[in-house]
Design a binder for these strands. Sequence first.
DNA 1: ATGCAATAGTC
DNA 2: GACTAT
DNA 3: GCAT
Length: 546
Amino acid sequence: MNVDRYFTRKRRADRLPFHFNQSVESKSSGFFSGVSILLAFFQRAHIAQVLFYYTKLQENGATVYRLEDKDILSTIKDKPLIVVTDNRLEVEQRFPSHSDAWEFVHKSWLERCLSQKKLLKTNSYQLLKKVDSPKETQATDSEKDSQDSDTEESLKKPRLSSSIEYRQRKEFASKIPSYCCQRKTENKSCANERLYQLFLQLEERRMLEMEHKMHALAYRRAAAVLKVYPYELSSVEEASWLPCFGAKCLKAVGEFLRTGGIQECTEFQQSERFQCLRLFCGIHGVGPTTACLWYDQYHLRTLQDVKNFLERKRLEGHPLAIKEYGLQYYDDLQQKISREEALHIFRQVEHAFHEVDPHLSCWLVGGFRRGQEEGHDIDILGCHDVEENGHFGKLAQILKVMGKKFEYLSLEHDSSINGDHRYDEPSSDASSSSQSLDESNSLERFIGLILHPYQERTIARRIDITLTKRSEFIFSLISWTGSSFFERDLRRYCAKEKNLRFNSHGIFEKHSKRRIYLGGQAQLPTEEQVFEYLQLPWLRPEERCA
DNA sequence: ATGCAATAGTC
DNA sequence: GACTAT
DNA sequence: GCAT
Ligand SMILES: Cc1cn([C@H]2C[C@H](O)[C@@H](COP(=O)(O)OP(=O)(O)OP(=O)(O)O)O2)c(=O)[nH]c1=O
Ligand SMILES: [Mg+2]
Protein backbone atom coordinates (compact mmCIF):
# COMPACT_ATOMS: atom_id res chain seq x y z
CA MET A 1 0.00 0.00 0.00
CA ASN A 2 1.11 3.47 -0.63
CA VAL A 3 1.97 5.09 2.64
CA ASP A 4 2.09 8.50 1.12
CA ARG A 5 -1.42 8.40 -0.18
CA TYR A 6 -2.55 7.42 3.23
CA PHE A 7 -0.77 10.16 5.04
CA THR A 8 -0.35 13.07 2.88
CA ARG A 9 -3.71 14.66 2.27
CA LYS A 10 -3.26 18.34 1.68
CA ARG A 11 0.43 18.01 0.97
CA ARG A 12 -0.38 16.05 -2.10
CA ALA A 13 -2.91 18.58 -3.32
CA ASP A 14 -0.16 21.03 -2.77
CA ARG A 15 2.15 19.21 -5.12
CA LEU A 16 3.44 21.36 -7.87
CA PRO A 17 2.95 20.80 -11.56
CA PHE A 18 5.59 18.79 -13.32
CA HIS A 19 7.69 21.55 -14.66
CA PHE A 20 11.32 20.93 -13.97
CA ASN A 21 11.73 18.38 -16.72
CA GLN A 22 12.19 20.72 -19.64
CA SER A 23 13.09 18.24 -22.23
CA VAL A 24 10.23 15.82 -22.80
CA GLU A 25 9.17 15.80 -26.43
CA SER A 26 7.84 19.32 -26.31
CA LYS A 27 10.56 20.95 -28.36
CA SER A 28 12.34 18.03 -30.01
CA SER A 29 14.49 20.71 -31.51
CA GLY A 30 16.85 18.09 -32.84
CA PHE A 31 19.97 20.01 -32.03
CA PHE A 32 21.87 16.76 -32.30
CA SER A 33 20.53 15.72 -35.67
CA GLY A 34 23.15 14.38 -38.04
CA VAL A 35 25.57 13.76 -35.19
CA SER A 36 26.76 10.26 -34.34
CA ILE A 37 27.71 9.55 -30.81
CA LEU A 38 29.21 6.55 -29.06
CA LEU A 39 28.61 6.21 -25.36
CA ALA A 40 31.58 4.33 -23.98
CA PHE A 41 31.61 4.23 -20.20
CA PHE A 42 33.53 1.80 -18.06
CA GLN A 43 33.01 2.99 -14.53
CA ARG A 44 29.95 1.47 -12.94
CA ALA A 45 28.56 4.76 -11.78
CA HIS A 46 28.67 6.02 -15.38
CA ILE A 47 27.32 2.86 -16.96
CA ALA A 48 24.22 3.34 -14.88
CA GLN A 49 23.62 6.62 -16.72
CA VAL A 50 24.02 5.33 -20.27
CA LEU A 51 20.31 4.71 -20.68
CA PHE A 52 19.52 8.23 -19.54
CA TYR A 53 21.93 9.81 -22.03
CA TYR A 54 20.83 7.43 -24.76
CA THR A 55 17.21 8.49 -24.52
CA LYS A 56 17.96 12.18 -24.28
CA LEU A 57 20.25 12.05 -27.29
CA GLN A 58 17.78 10.14 -29.42
CA GLU A 59 15.02 12.56 -28.49
CA ASN A 60 17.20 15.29 -29.87
CA GLY A 61 18.01 13.64 -33.14
CA ALA A 62 21.39 12.04 -32.56
CA THR A 63 22.42 8.65 -33.88
CA VAL A 64 23.55 6.93 -30.72
CA TYR A 65 25.64 3.81 -30.20
CA ARG A 66 26.43 1.96 -27.03
CA LEU A 67 29.29 -0.39 -26.34
CA GLU A 68 27.00 -3.29 -25.79
CA ASP A 69 25.16 -2.85 -29.10
CA LYS A 70 25.98 -5.75 -31.39
CA ASP A 71 28.14 -5.32 -34.47
CA ILE A 72 28.73 -1.65 -34.00
CA LEU A 73 32.30 -1.98 -35.15
CA SER A 74 31.60 -2.14 -38.88
CA THR A 75 29.04 0.65 -38.80
CA ILE A 76 31.03 3.16 -36.85
CA LYS A 77 34.67 2.55 -37.41
CA ASP A 78 34.98 4.59 -40.60
CA LYS A 79 32.75 7.51 -39.94
CA PRO A 80 33.00 10.71 -37.95
CA LEU A 81 31.97 10.01 -34.42
CA ILE A 82 31.95 11.72 -31.08
CA VAL A 83 32.99 9.26 -28.43
CA VAL A 84 31.85 10.23 -24.97
CA THR A 85 33.94 8.20 -22.59
CA ASP A 86 35.56 7.95 -19.20
CA ASN A 87 38.49 5.95 -20.51
CA ARG A 88 39.89 6.78 -23.92
CA LEU A 89 42.58 4.15 -23.75
CA GLU A 90 40.10 1.38 -23.26
CA VAL A 91 38.08 2.54 -26.26
CA GLU A 92 41.14 2.69 -28.47
CA GLN A 93 42.07 -0.81 -27.48
CA ARG A 94 38.64 -2.06 -28.29
CA PHE A 95 38.56 -0.31 -31.68
CA PRO A 96 42.20 -0.34 -32.72
CA SER A 97 41.64 0.78 -36.30
CA HIS A 98 39.09 3.50 -35.91
CA SER A 99 38.78 6.48 -38.21
CA ASP A 100 40.80 9.63 -37.60
CA ALA A 101 37.53 11.47 -37.52
CA TRP A 102 36.69 10.16 -34.10
CA GLU A 103 36.69 12.72 -31.33
CA PHE A 104 37.01 11.72 -27.72
CA VAL A 105 35.24 13.91 -25.20
CA HIS A 106 34.47 13.97 -21.53
CA LYS A 107 30.90 13.45 -20.39
CA SER A 108 30.72 17.02 -19.10
CA TRP A 109 30.42 18.02 -22.78
CA LEU A 110 27.25 16.00 -23.04
CA GLU A 111 25.91 17.41 -19.80
CA ARG A 112 26.44 20.96 -21.04
CA CYS A 113 24.88 20.29 -24.43
CA LEU A 114 21.81 18.78 -22.85
CA SER A 115 21.36 21.50 -20.28
CA GLN A 116 21.85 24.31 -22.82
CA LYS A 117 19.95 22.47 -25.53
CA LYS A 118 22.49 23.09 -28.19
CA LEU A 119 25.43 21.43 -29.82
CA LEU A 120 28.56 22.86 -28.27
CA LYS A 121 32.10 22.86 -29.61
CA THR A 122 33.99 19.88 -28.29
CA ASN A 123 37.27 21.78 -28.07
CA SER A 124 37.61 22.25 -24.38
CA TYR A 125 36.20 18.85 -23.57
CA GLN A 126 38.55 16.78 -25.73
CA LEU A 127 40.35 13.95 -24.04
CA LEU A 128 44.01 13.60 -24.79
CA LYS A 129 45.60 10.33 -25.60
CA LYS A 130 47.61 9.73 -22.49
CA VAL A 131 50.84 7.86 -23.01
CA ASP A 132 50.36 6.40 -19.59
CA SER A 133 51.68 3.00 -18.61
CA PRO A 134 49.81 0.77 -21.02
CA LYS A 135 48.55 -2.30 -19.16
CA GLU A 136 47.77 -4.49 -22.14
CA THR A 137 47.66 -7.75 -20.29
CA GLN A 138 44.68 -6.83 -18.17
CA ALA A 139 42.48 -5.77 -21.02
CA THR A 140 43.23 -8.75 -23.24
CA ASP A 141 42.72 -11.08 -20.34
CA SER A 142 39.27 -9.83 -19.67
CA GLU A 143 38.49 -9.95 -23.37
CA LYS A 144 39.49 -13.58 -23.44
CA ASP A 145 37.37 -14.18 -20.40
CA SER A 146 34.18 -13.35 -22.14
CA GLN A 147 35.11 -15.06 -25.39
CA ASP A 148 36.10 -18.35 -23.90
CA SER A 149 33.47 -18.48 -21.29
CA ASP A 150 32.06 -21.80 -22.47
CA THR A 151 35.31 -23.67 -22.08
CA GLU A 152 36.14 -21.90 -18.85
CA GLU A 153 32.86 -22.79 -17.40
CA SER A 154 32.99 -26.45 -18.35
CA LEU A 155 36.47 -26.75 -16.92
CA LYS A 156 35.31 -25.45 -13.60
CA LYS A 157 32.97 -27.41 -11.45
CA PRO A 158 29.90 -27.62 -13.64
CA ARG A 159 27.75 -25.42 -11.49
CA LEU A 160 26.30 -23.07 -14.04
CA SER A 161 24.05 -25.23 -16.13
CA SER A 162 24.49 -23.38 -19.38
CA SER A 163 26.80 -20.84 -20.87
CA ILE A 164 23.75 -18.73 -21.54
CA GLU A 165 23.05 -18.56 -17.84
CA TYR A 166 26.70 -17.78 -17.26
CA ARG A 167 26.58 -14.87 -19.67
CA GLN A 168 23.33 -13.62 -18.23
CA ARG A 169 24.75 -13.53 -14.75
CA LYS A 170 27.95 -11.88 -15.83
CA GLU A 171 25.98 -9.32 -17.78
CA PHE A 172 23.73 -8.62 -14.82
CA ALA A 173 26.64 -8.33 -12.42
CA SER A 174 28.49 -5.95 -14.68
CA LYS A 175 25.48 -3.66 -14.75
CA ILE A 176 25.03 -3.32 -10.99
CA PRO A 177 25.78 0.33 -10.30
CA SER A 178 28.26 1.18 -7.60
CA TYR A 179 25.98 3.41 -5.52
CA CYS A 180 22.89 1.90 -3.95
CA CYS A 181 20.96 5.08 -4.74
CA GLN A 182 21.31 4.16 -8.42
CA ARG A 183 19.46 0.89 -8.06
CA LYS A 184 16.25 -0.47 -6.61
CA THR A 185 16.57 -2.39 -3.38
CA GLU A 186 13.38 -3.80 -1.94
CA ASN A 187 13.14 -5.27 1.45
CA LYS A 188 12.53 -8.88 0.67
CA SER A 189 14.81 -11.77 1.28
CA CYS A 190 17.32 -12.21 -1.49
CA ALA A 191 18.74 -15.09 -3.47
CA ASN A 192 21.76 -15.24 -1.18
CA GLU A 193 19.97 -14.57 2.06
CA ARG A 194 22.24 -16.69 4.30
CA LEU A 195 25.41 -15.22 2.87
CA TYR A 196 23.86 -11.77 3.09
CA GLN A 197 23.18 -12.24 6.80
CA LEU A 198 26.72 -13.47 7.36
CA PHE A 199 28.12 -10.38 5.67
CA LEU A 200 25.99 -8.26 7.99
CA GLN A 201 27.52 -10.16 10.88
CA LEU A 202 31.00 -9.40 9.59
CA GLU A 203 29.94 -5.78 9.43
CA GLU A 204 28.67 -5.90 12.99
CA ARG A 205 31.89 -7.43 14.22
CA ARG A 206 34.06 -4.77 12.53
CA MET A 207 31.72 -2.15 13.97
CA LEU A 208 32.02 -3.42 17.54
CA GLU A 209 35.78 -3.69 17.24
CA MET A 210 36.20 0.01 16.74
CA GLU A 211 39.37 0.72 14.74
CA HIS A 212 37.73 -1.06 11.84
CA LYS A 213 34.77 1.15 10.97
CA MET A 214 35.90 1.32 7.37
CA HIS A 215 36.06 -2.42 7.09
CA ALA A 216 32.54 -2.51 8.44
CA LEU A 217 31.52 -0.13 5.69
CA ALA A 218 33.13 -2.34 3.07
CA TYR A 219 31.18 -5.39 4.25
CA ARG A 220 28.02 -3.32 4.40
CA ARG A 221 28.49 -2.31 0.77
CA ALA A 222 29.14 -5.86 -0.31
CA ALA A 223 26.06 -7.03 1.55
CA ALA A 224 23.99 -4.37 -0.17
CA VAL A 225 25.19 -5.64 -3.54
CA LEU A 226 24.32 -9.20 -2.57
CA LYS A 227 20.83 -8.03 -1.76
CA VAL A 228 20.13 -6.97 -5.32
CA TYR A 229 21.85 -9.87 -7.11
CA PRO A 230 19.02 -12.23 -8.07
CA TYR A 231 21.08 -15.40 -8.62
CA GLU A 232 22.35 -17.71 -5.94
CA LEU A 233 26.14 -17.47 -6.12
CA SER A 234 27.71 -20.67 -7.41
CA SER A 235 31.38 -19.81 -7.54
CA VAL A 236 33.95 -17.35 -6.34
CA GLU A 237 34.50 -16.32 -9.91
CA GLU A 238 30.88 -15.31 -10.15
CA ALA A 239 31.20 -13.22 -6.99
CA SER A 240 34.25 -11.53 -8.47
CA TRP A 241 32.02 -9.88 -11.07
CA LEU A 242 30.19 -8.01 -8.35
CA PRO A 243 31.18 -4.50 -7.30
CA CYS A 244 32.58 -4.16 -3.77
CA PHE A 245 33.80 -7.75 -3.75
CA GLY A 246 37.57 -7.71 -3.33
CA ALA A 247 40.02 -10.22 -1.94
CA LYS A 248 38.49 -10.52 1.52
CA CYS A 249 34.89 -10.71 0.45
CA LEU A 250 35.75 -13.32 -2.17
CA LYS A 251 37.56 -15.33 0.45
CA ALA A 252 34.46 -15.24 2.62
CA VAL A 253 32.31 -16.32 -0.33
CA GLY A 254 34.70 -19.17 -1.04
CA GLU A 255 34.55 -20.41 2.50
CA PHE A 256 30.80 -20.15 2.49
CA LEU A 257 30.47 -22.14 -0.72
CA ARG A 258 32.79 -24.85 0.59
CA THR A 259 31.57 -25.18 4.15
CA GLY A 260 28.16 -23.57 4.23
CA GLY A 261 29.29 -21.06 6.84
CA ILE A 262 31.98 -18.60 7.79
CA GLN A 263 34.14 -19.63 10.69
CA GLU A 264 34.80 -16.13 11.90
CA CYS A 265 31.07 -15.60 12.26
CA THR A 266 30.37 -18.77 14.18
CA GLU A 267 33.26 -18.05 16.48
CA PHE A 268 32.47 -14.52 17.45
CA GLN A 269 28.76 -15.18 17.68
CA GLN A 270 29.50 -17.71 20.39
CA SER A 271 32.07 -15.67 22.23
CA GLU A 272 30.91 -14.20 25.51
CA ARG A 273 32.59 -10.95 24.67
CA PHE A 274 30.52 -10.25 21.59
CA GLN A 275 27.32 -11.36 23.19
CA CYS A 276 27.93 -8.86 25.97
CA LEU A 277 29.01 -6.07 23.64
CA ARG A 278 25.87 -6.59 21.61
CA LEU A 279 23.77 -6.58 24.77
CA PHE A 280 25.32 -3.33 25.98
CA CYS A 281 25.05 -1.60 22.62
CA GLY A 282 21.36 -2.39 22.73
CA ILE A 283 21.05 0.23 25.47
CA HIS A 284 20.12 3.59 24.02
CA GLY A 285 23.10 5.86 24.65
CA VAL A 286 25.68 3.10 24.76
CA GLY A 287 27.93 2.50 21.76
CA PRO A 288 30.92 0.29 20.99
CA THR A 289 33.41 2.33 23.02
CA THR A 290 31.40 2.30 26.21
CA ALA A 291 30.50 -1.33 25.72
CA CYS A 292 34.16 -2.32 25.38
CA LEU A 293 35.07 -0.20 28.36
CA TRP A 294 32.43 -1.85 30.48
CA TYR A 295 33.41 -5.33 29.38
CA ASP A 296 37.19 -5.01 29.40
CA GLN A 297 37.87 -2.53 32.21
CA TYR A 298 34.96 -2.95 34.55
CA HIS A 299 34.22 -6.58 33.75
CA LEU A 300 30.48 -6.02 33.48
CA ARG A 301 28.61 -8.94 31.97
CA THR A 302 24.90 -8.55 32.57
CA LEU A 303 22.33 -5.81 32.58
CA GLN A 304 22.22 -6.14 36.35
CA ASP A 305 25.96 -5.43 36.44
CA VAL A 306 25.32 -2.34 34.37
CA LYS A 307 22.51 -1.21 36.63
CA ASN A 308 24.66 -1.50 39.71
CA PHE A 309 27.51 0.22 37.94
CA LEU A 310 25.43 3.18 36.82
CA GLU A 311 23.86 3.44 40.24
CA ARG A 312 27.31 3.79 41.76
CA LYS A 313 28.33 6.36 39.16
CA ARG A 314 25.23 8.36 39.83
CA LEU A 315 25.98 8.51 43.53
CA GLU A 316 29.42 9.79 42.59
CA GLY A 317 27.65 12.61 40.82
CA HIS A 318 28.03 11.62 37.16
CA PRO A 319 25.35 12.83 34.76
CA LEU A 320 23.96 9.75 33.10
CA ALA A 321 20.41 10.66 32.23
CA ILE A 322 20.26 9.20 28.73
CA LYS A 323 21.87 5.89 29.55
CA GLU A 324 19.71 5.52 32.61
CA TYR A 325 16.55 5.99 30.63
CA GLY A 326 17.97 3.60 28.09
CA LEU A 327 18.40 1.03 30.83
CA GLN A 328 15.14 1.76 32.58
CA TYR A 329 13.19 1.14 29.39
CA TYR A 330 15.56 -1.46 27.98
CA ASP A 331 12.96 -4.20 27.59
CA ASP A 332 10.36 -1.93 26.04
CA LEU A 333 12.80 -0.39 23.60
CA GLN A 334 13.99 -3.82 22.48
CA GLN A 335 10.47 -4.69 21.36
CA LYS A 336 9.86 -4.10 17.69
CA ILE A 337 7.05 -1.73 16.83
CA SER A 338 4.46 -3.13 14.47
CA ARG A 339 3.29 -1.10 11.57
CA GLU A 340 -0.16 -1.08 13.06
CA GLU A 341 1.00 0.43 16.31
CA ALA A 342 3.14 2.93 14.46
CA LEU A 343 0.09 4.07 12.53
CA HIS A 344 -1.82 4.35 15.76
CA ILE A 345 0.78 6.65 17.24
CA PHE A 346 1.15 8.53 14.01
CA ARG A 347 -2.55 9.37 13.82
CA GLN A 348 -2.51 10.84 17.28
CA VAL A 349 0.56 12.90 16.57
CA GLU A 350 -1.00 14.09 13.34
CA HIS A 351 -4.04 15.04 15.32
CA ALA A 352 -1.93 17.09 17.68
CA PHE A 353 -0.29 18.81 14.69
CA HIS A 354 -3.65 19.86 13.33
CA GLU A 355 -4.94 20.98 16.65
CA VAL A 356 -1.99 23.34 16.96
CA ASP A 357 -2.25 24.53 13.36
CA PRO A 358 -4.34 22.93 10.62
CA HIS A 359 -1.76 24.05 8.07
CA LEU A 360 0.92 21.83 9.55
CA SER A 361 1.31 18.66 7.55
CA CYS A 362 2.64 15.56 9.15
CA TRP A 363 4.38 12.61 7.53
CA LEU A 364 5.38 9.21 8.79
CA VAL A 365 8.94 8.71 7.61
CA GLY A 366 11.80 6.32 8.41
CA GLY A 367 11.36 2.62 7.83
CA PHE A 368 7.60 2.79 7.94
CA ARG A 369 7.50 5.12 4.97
CA ARG A 370 9.53 2.51 3.12
CA GLY A 371 6.80 0.02 3.82
CA GLN A 372 8.52 -1.91 6.60
CA GLU A 373 6.24 -4.00 8.78
CA GLU A 374 8.37 -3.40 11.88
CA GLY A 375 10.57 -0.67 13.20
CA HIS A 376 12.59 0.30 16.22
CA ASP A 377 11.17 3.80 16.48
CA ILE A 378 8.62 6.19 15.03
CA ASP A 379 10.02 8.89 12.78
CA ILE A 380 7.77 11.83 12.01
CA LEU A 381 8.44 14.83 9.82
CA GLY A 382 6.35 17.96 9.45
CA CYS A 383 6.29 21.42 7.98
CA HIS A 384 3.95 24.32 7.45
CA ASP A 385 1.98 24.14 4.23
CA VAL A 386 1.87 27.83 3.47
CA GLU A 387 4.46 29.82 5.32
CA GLU A 388 8.15 29.19 4.95
CA ASN A 389 8.80 29.40 8.66
CA GLY A 390 5.32 28.53 9.79
CA HIS A 391 6.70 25.77 11.97
CA PHE A 392 8.65 28.06 14.29
CA GLY A 393 7.78 27.45 17.88
CA LYS A 394 5.10 24.94 17.04
CA LEU A 395 6.84 21.86 18.36
CA ALA A 396 6.46 22.82 22.00
CA GLN A 397 2.74 23.32 21.44
CA ILE A 398 2.43 20.01 19.69
CA LEU A 399 4.11 18.26 22.57
CA LYS A 400 1.80 19.98 24.98
CA VAL A 401 -1.22 18.70 23.08
CA MET A 402 0.28 15.24 22.82
CA GLY A 403 0.81 15.36 26.56
CA LYS A 404 -2.91 14.98 26.96
CA LYS A 405 -2.70 11.53 25.43
CA PHE A 406 0.74 10.25 26.36
CA GLU A 407 3.37 10.83 28.88
CA TYR A 408 6.53 11.66 27.06
CA LEU A 409 10.06 12.53 27.96
CA SER A 410 12.88 14.05 26.02
CA LEU A 411 16.22 12.33 25.67
CA GLU A 412 17.85 15.66 24.97
CA HIS A 413 18.02 19.06 26.61
CA ASP A 414 17.24 18.75 30.27
CA SER A 415 15.28 15.60 29.71
CA SER A 416 12.29 16.92 31.53
CA ILE A 417 8.93 15.28 31.66
CA ASN A 418 6.24 17.20 29.84
CA GLY A 419 7.94 19.92 27.99
CA ASP A 420 9.58 23.04 28.92
CA HIS A 421 11.05 24.09 25.64
CA ARG A 422 12.89 27.23 24.92
CA TYR A 423 13.93 27.14 21.31
CA ASP A 424 12.67 29.48 18.60
CA GLU A 425 14.99 32.32 17.84
CA PRO A 426 13.42 34.17 14.94
CA SER A 427 17.01 34.83 13.86
CA SER A 428 16.12 38.12 12.27
CA ASP A 429 19.42 38.46 10.49
CA ALA A 430 19.02 40.00 7.10
CA SER A 431 22.56 39.01 6.37
CA SER A 432 21.58 35.54 5.18
CA SER A 433 25.21 35.11 4.31
CA SER A 434 25.59 31.69 5.78
CA GLN A 435 22.11 30.35 5.68
CA SER A 436 23.52 27.19 4.18
CA LEU A 437 25.06 25.49 7.15
CA ASP A 438 22.96 26.15 10.14
CA GLU A 439 20.71 23.31 11.16
CA SER A 440 19.57 24.91 14.37
CA ASN A 441 17.53 27.79 13.07
CA SER A 442 15.42 25.83 10.63
CA LEU A 443 15.01 22.50 12.39
CA GLU A 444 13.09 21.88 15.45
CA ARG A 445 13.18 18.37 16.68
CA PHE A 446 12.09 16.24 19.52
CA ILE A 447 13.94 13.04 20.25
CA GLY A 448 12.49 11.14 23.10
CA LEU A 449 10.16 8.54 24.46
CA ILE A 450 6.43 8.27 24.70
CA LEU A 451 4.61 5.91 26.99
CA HIS A 452 2.09 4.43 24.66
CA PRO A 453 -1.04 2.80 26.06
CA TYR A 454 -1.84 0.17 23.47
CA GLN A 455 -3.52 -3.22 23.58
CA GLU A 456 -4.00 -3.38 27.35
CA ARG A 457 -0.52 -2.33 28.33
CA THR A 458 1.62 0.76 28.29
CA ILE A 459 4.92 0.52 26.54
CA ALA A 460 7.73 3.00 26.00
CA ARG A 461 8.47 3.84 22.38
CA ARG A 462 11.21 5.91 20.81
CA ILE A 463 9.87 8.79 18.77
CA ASP A 464 11.53 11.46 16.62
CA ILE A 465 9.58 14.48 15.50
CA THR A 466 11.24 16.96 13.19
CA LEU A 467 9.81 20.18 11.79
CA THR A 468 11.42 21.91 8.83
CA LYS A 469 11.09 25.00 6.69
CA ARG A 470 8.56 24.62 3.94
CA SER A 471 11.15 25.09 1.20
CA GLU A 472 13.46 22.50 2.68
CA PHE A 473 10.82 19.95 3.43
CA ILE A 474 11.42 17.80 0.39
CA PHE A 475 15.11 17.37 1.21
CA SER A 476 14.24 16.49 4.78
CA LEU A 477 11.69 14.02 3.50
CA ILE A 478 14.35 12.30 1.42
CA SER A 479 16.81 12.45 4.31
CA TRP A 480 14.43 10.93 6.81
CA THR A 481 13.02 8.26 4.55
CA GLY A 482 16.32 6.39 4.51
CA SER A 483 17.48 3.78 4.70
CA SER A 484 20.55 5.09 6.46
CA PHE A 485 22.77 3.26 4.01
CA PHE A 486 20.82 4.77 1.14
CA GLU A 487 21.40 8.23 2.61
CA ARG A 488 25.13 7.67 2.85
CA ASP A 489 25.39 6.50 -0.72
CA LEU A 490 23.16 9.30 -1.95
CA ARG A 491 25.45 11.85 -0.37
CA ARG A 492 28.57 10.09 -1.56
CA TYR A 493 27.13 9.97 -5.07
CA CYS A 494 26.33 13.68 -5.00
CA ALA A 495 29.80 14.55 -3.77
CA LYS A 496 31.81 12.24 -6.01
CA GLU A 497 29.80 12.15 -9.21
CA LYS A 498 28.04 15.49 -9.24
CA ASN A 499 30.22 17.79 -7.18
CA LEU A 500 27.27 18.58 -4.98
CA ARG A 501 26.60 18.39 -1.32
CA PHE A 502 23.34 16.91 -0.19
CA ASN A 503 21.90 17.35 3.27
CA SER A 504 18.50 17.63 4.87
CA HIS A 505 18.26 21.31 3.86
CA GLY A 506 18.95 21.03 0.20
CA ILE A 507 21.56 20.59 -2.46
CA PHE A 508 24.59 22.83 -2.53
CA GLU A 509 27.54 23.40 -4.78
CA LYS A 510 30.40 21.61 -3.17
CA HIS A 511 32.90 24.42 -3.07
CA SER A 512 30.94 27.64 -3.17
CA LYS A 513 28.34 26.09 -0.87
CA ARG A 514 25.75 27.97 -2.87
CA ARG A 515 22.27 26.56 -2.71
CA ILE A 516 20.86 25.00 -5.86
CA TYR A 517 17.26 25.87 -6.58
CA LEU A 518 15.47 23.19 -8.54
CA GLY A 519 12.52 23.96 -10.74
CA GLY A 520 13.54 27.57 -10.89
CA GLN A 521 13.13 29.28 -7.54
CA ALA A 522 9.43 29.95 -7.66
CA GLN A 523 8.23 26.42 -7.21
CA LEU A 524 9.25 23.71 -4.84
CA PRO A 525 10.56 20.53 -6.40
CA THR A 526 8.97 17.16 -5.83
CA GLU A 527 10.88 14.12 -4.69
CA GLU A 528 10.84 12.84 -8.28
CA GLN A 529 12.33 16.07 -9.53
CA VAL A 530 15.16 15.89 -7.03
CA PHE A 531 16.02 12.42 -8.28
CA GLU A 532 15.80 13.59 -11.86
CA TYR A 533 18.02 16.58 -11.18
CA LEU A 534 20.62 14.26 -9.71
CA GLN A 535 20.23 11.95 -12.71
CA LEU A 536 19.16 9.10 -10.55
CA PRO A 537 16.43 6.68 -11.55
CA TRP A 538 13.28 7.34 -9.59
CA LEU A 539 13.12 5.09 -6.55
CA ARG A 540 9.95 4.82 -4.56
CA PRO A 541 10.49 4.75 -0.79
CA GLU A 542 10.05 0.96 -0.77
CA GLU A 543 12.89 0.74 -3.26
CA ARG A 544 15.36 2.48 -0.97
CA CYS A 545 15.75 -0.40 1.46
CA ALA A 546 19.46 -0.88 0.90
C1' DA B 1 47.54 6.84 -1.25
C1' DT B 2 43.28 8.45 -0.18
C1' DG B 3 38.45 8.71 1.13
C1' DC B 4 34.60 6.56 2.91
C1' DA B 5 27.54 11.09 4.70
C1' DA B 6 26.48 14.67 7.15
C1' DT B 7 24.63 16.69 11.48
C1' DA B 8 23.54 17.51 16.36
C1' DG B 9 23.53 16.87 21.43
C1' DT B 10 25.97 15.18 25.76
C1' DC B 11 29.68 14.81 28.70
C1' DG C 1 37.03 16.19 21.06
C1' DA C 2 35.25 11.64 21.79
C1' DC C 3 31.10 9.38 21.76
C1' DT C 4 26.34 8.44 20.49
C1' DA C 5 22.59 9.46 18.01
C1' DT C 6 19.85 10.41 13.51
C1' DG D 1 38.17 -3.48 2.76
C1' DC D 2 37.35 -1.60 -1.63
C1' DA D 3 37.58 1.57 -5.55
C1' DT D 4 39.83 5.16 -7.68
C1 LIG E 1 20.50 5.87 11.74
C2 LIG E 1 20.47 6.92 10.66
C3 LIG E 1 19.29 7.38 10.15
N1 LIG E 1 19.25 8.32 9.17
C4 LIG E 1 17.97 8.76 8.60
C5 LIG E 1 17.49 7.74 7.59
C6 LIG E 1 16.54 6.91 8.37
O1 LIG E 1 15.57 6.26 7.63
C7 LIG E 1 15.94 7.93 9.29
C8 LIG E 1 15.37 7.32 10.54
O2 LIG E 1 16.37 6.63 11.24
P1 LIG E 1 16.09 5.25 11.94
O3 LIG E 1 14.80 5.32 12.64
O4 LIG E 1 17.30 4.91 12.76
O5 LIG E 1 16.04 4.22 10.74
P2 LIG E 1 14.78 3.52 10.09
O6 LIG E 1 13.52 4.20 10.47
O7 LIG E 1 15.06 3.47 8.63
O8 LIG E 1 14.81 2.04 10.67
P3 LIG E 1 14.14 1.52 12.02
O9 LIG E 1 13.04 0.66 11.58
O10 LIG E 1 15.20 0.78 12.74
O11 LIG E 1 13.66 2.69 12.81
O12 LIG E 1 16.99 8.82 9.60
C9 LIG E 1 20.42 8.83 8.67
O13 LIG E 1 20.40 9.67 7.78
N2 LIG E 1 21.61 8.37 9.15
C10 LIG E 1 21.69 7.43 10.12
O14 LIG E 1 22.80 7.03 10.51
MG1 LIG F 1 12.84 4.52 12.33
